[in-house]
Simulated assay, not measured.
Amino acid sequence: MLDSGGMPSSHSATVSALAATIGIQEGTGSPVFAIAVVLACIVMYDASGVRLHAGRQAELLNQIVCELPPEHPLSNARPLRDSLGHTPFQVVAGGLLGYIVAFLMRNSN
């Protein structure tokens, strides 16, 4: 929940659970549900797009730094975090998990 990357996407699970819960409680025609769906779409797009590519760039930069000669000032730089985003499959799995959790929590009450 507090870390980036991995399977499934906890960010996607959280926002999809939020949207599903609002849809169940308030109805899918409510403005609050529309806002939650837009928020979920933005978070999921960011997780599988911008953050995934930033992680790939960090991976390449780490590789470049490792290949620098020892006397280079950046040769001892701390590696960048490269597990930032999610694959589309991880995002979809997180979204489904969030929906399932919201549905199960509704039925447990």
Rank of each mutant, 00 (worst) to 15 (best):
A58Y: 05
G55W: 00
R56V: 11
G55Y: 02
H53F: 14
A47I: 06
Q57S: 09
P69I: 07
L74I: 08
S83I: 08
R81W: 05
T87H: 03
R51K: 10
N76Y: 01
P73R: 08
R81F: 11
L84M: 13
P73G: 09
S75V: 04
P69L: 09
R56P: 01
E67P: 00
D82W: 03
T87A: 05
A58F: 08
G85H: 02
A58R: 02
A54Y: 03
H86D: 03
A77M: 15
S83F: 01
L74A: 15
L68E: 12
A58C: 14
P70C: 10
H53Q: 12
S75R: 03
L60V: 09
N62L: 15
L84C: 03
P88E: 05
P69Q: 04
A77R: 11
L84E: 03
Q57R: 04
Q63S: 12
V50A: 09
Y45W: 12
C66Q: 15
H86K: 03
R81E: 14
L80P: 02
H86R: 01
E71Y: 03
L60C: 08
G49D: 08
I64F: 15
E71A: 11
S83L: 09
E59Y: 12
A77E: 06
E59M: 11
T87Q: 02
S75W: 01
V50W: 06
Q63M: 11
L52M: 11
A54N: 02
H53A: 08
D82N: 14
L84S: 05
H72T: 11
S75M: 06
L74H: 07
G85R: 00
V65W: 03
E71H: 09
